[in-house]
Design a protein around this nucleic acid. Structure first.
Lengths: 231, 231
DNA sequence: CGGGACTTTGAAACCCTTCAATGCCAGTGG
DNA sequence: CCACTGGCATTGAAGGGTTTCAAAGTCCCG
């Protein structure tokens, strides 16, 4: 849904769109600062509110019965979340970084507002479509074959979504563990892939979170980075 | 979002919910029968309509630059699709089976209807949330480790979504190739996994499309089917 | 009765997971 | 101030699962 165009600049964050929705919803918004790791909404809890990430970062995930954690969405400033079909959430959302602020909108009141405000209703649909686009992007990333490709496109996706990027620098808001659970690979594989990308000269690392994209073309063009011709 | 409960009977198809939306939208619906393989909406084409699958089955997919096809949604009767953030679709939808019928709703007119019909607006949101739930399910399936698990949970998902199931019989509307592109594994792996599940006595195959779930418990409980204790 | 698409099976190479160990860093308490 | 602890990150080695290439078998439809 979102054209993952290469050099396009989607710097128009979700915050800048939906200006009407933000204004209308502001009346019922309840903002809360969150500690690192704090649960915002939890699997099995009644789904009585929608949320918008104001600042920081958060992970939406599902715990499997074997203890593995699958992150099904990474929330960045401007992103809405907390949608549910059933009466209860079937996922958990946790703040990732310390200075995370979340705005909560009681679902019932938000729906009532939308009933009398067609423009709000339209923008809420748009917001749902954005969530769909995020999931489709993630699906396409996870669906790649090698870990090198997965990690590579993850960095590109973060670069596209993060508004606080400057040039080709990306400040990852997540740990290697989070990346691993987002990409459905092991932590070791993520670490090795990053090292590999560094050695190939596609990225540069300053510390563990600071990534500089050196060769964006190679990162996005190569659908099979590191593939060696078979004969 | 959708609790993938085990023996629960989600026989309440999308068609039975959204009764109001169906009635309101009926006024602008344009139904079309599709041949097998026929394109319903295409990547790059203007996104001017929403759709609902009336009967049959369809695949929503993205073509990668290396020629690989990633199916990002499997549409079954009652499912809505065709949502887009941009002016153009960034995916393609094709009918899979011969007797596929699709209802199209011109987007502009549908939005106008929703502007004056809060109940329709609510159900359209609900419909978007259903699409989100489908994608989350797929993400969780693709995120599994072994192909055995992926194929196993795919069968369970089909069993849950297909309304025309009887008991534990599932009639797959898709080929091995489609399953492979849905699960992001190779066709050969899908074939081997099915053979494996058969040999383990978890399923039985009558022809290639007719699956009988023999041991549902083992299929859903085992998060690591075929895992062999390491010591 | 042939095509042609779909399915299955085999073998080799490759990639990822798992287990294990080390290194790094910040926060904490002695 | 410094050892200590725990979380995070990196690296190595072994084993296993998946992909790829290849070939044969199956089935449907013209």
């Amino acid at each position: 849904m979102r054209s993952n165009g290469s050099m396009c600049a989607p710097l128009e964050t979700s915050s800048s769109r939906h200006s009407h929705a933000l204004k209308s919803l502001a009346a019922i918004a309840v903002s809360t600062p969150c500690r690192r790791g704090q649960e915002i909404c939890g699997q099995g809890r009644p789904a009585e509110a929608w949320y918008r990430l104001v600042s920081g970062a958060a992970r939406r995930f599902v715990l499997r019965s074997d203890g593995r954690r699958q992150i099904v969405d990474l929330l960045l400033p401007g992103d809405f979340f907390g949608f549910a079909l059933d009466a209860e959430f079937d996922y958990t959302v946790e703040a990732i970084v310390a200075d995370t602020v979340v705005a909560a909108y009681q679902r019932k009141r938000a729906e009532d507002l939308a009933d009398h405000d067609p423009q709000l209703a339209r923008e809420l649909r748009e917001i749902a479509f954005e969530a769909l686009a995020r999931m489709q992007s993630q699906l396409l990333i996870i669906g790649r074959i090698t870990a090198l490709e997965k990690v590579g496109s993850f960095i590109l996706e973060m670069s596209n979504r993060l508004s606080d990027r400057e040039g080709d620098r990306v400040l990852l808001p997540v740990s290697r563990y989070d990346i691993a659970d987002y990409l459905a690979v092991s932590v070791e594989t993520v670490s090795r892939a990053l090292t590999d990308l560094k050695h190939r000269g596609l990225i540069r690392l300053s510390g563990t979170r600071n990534v500089k994209i050196v060769n964006r073309g190679a990162l996005e063009e190569s659908d099979r980075i590191g593939q060696v011709a078979h004969f």
